[in-house]
Simulated scan of single mutants.
Amino acid sequence: MPVVFRFDGFRFHFYSNEGDPREPVHIHVARAGGDAKFWLFPEVEMAYNCGFDARTIKRLQDVVASRRSEIEEAWNEYFT
């Protein structure tokens, strides 16, 4: 599972086996006790959340939005 970056104890990653056909660009965020998934386009949007409170989700969504181009670049590098 390629890790794109770590931030404040969270791991931002995607899975090398993202389905067939592959899902659109997204990022998984994990930390002990929780994980979430965010779509990047057309806007950053939470796909699912398991274990994070609303405040944490908002913070994670902001991080994903601010680093969206970095995430997309890592995705395209890995899958193309």
Rank of each mutant, 00 (worst) to 15 (best):
V3D: 12
V4Y: 05
F5T: 12
F7N: 12
F7I: 06
D8P: 01
D8T: 09
G9E: 08
F10P: 03
R11A: 12
R11D: 09
F12G: 00
F12Q: 03
H13Q: 12
H13N: 04
Y15H: 15
Y15I: 12
Y15G: 03
N17V: 06
N17W: 10
G19N: 15
G19I: 08
G19R: 11
G19W: 09
D20N: 15
P21K: 10
R22E: 08
E23L: 15
P24L: 06
P24D: 08
P24I: 04
V25N: 06
H26K: 09
I27C: 02
I27D: 01
V29P: 00
A30S: 10
R31W: 00
A32Y: 14
A32I: 13
A32C: 05
A32R: 15
G33W: 07
D35V: 04
A36G: 03
A36Y: 02
K37E: 14
F38G: 05
W39S: 12
W39I: 01
W39F: 11
F41C: 09
F41W: 14
P42A: 01
P42H: 05
E45H: 11
A47T: 01
Y48T: 03
N49P: 00
C50P: 00
F52Y: 15
A54F: 03
R55N: 13
T56R: 04
T56L: 07
I57Q: 02
R59L: 13
R59F: 11
Q61H: 09
Q61C: 10
Q61F: 00
D62F: 08
D62W: 08
V63E: 09
V64M: 03
V64S: 00
A65H: 09
S66K: 14
S66W: 14
R67G: 04
R68L: 12
S69T: 08
E70V: 15
E70C: 07
E70L: 15
E70H: 11
I71R: 00
I71V: 11
I71H: 01
E72R: 13
E72A: 14
E73G: 07
E73Y: 07
A74G: 06
W75I: 04
N76G: 14
E77L: 11
E77W: 09
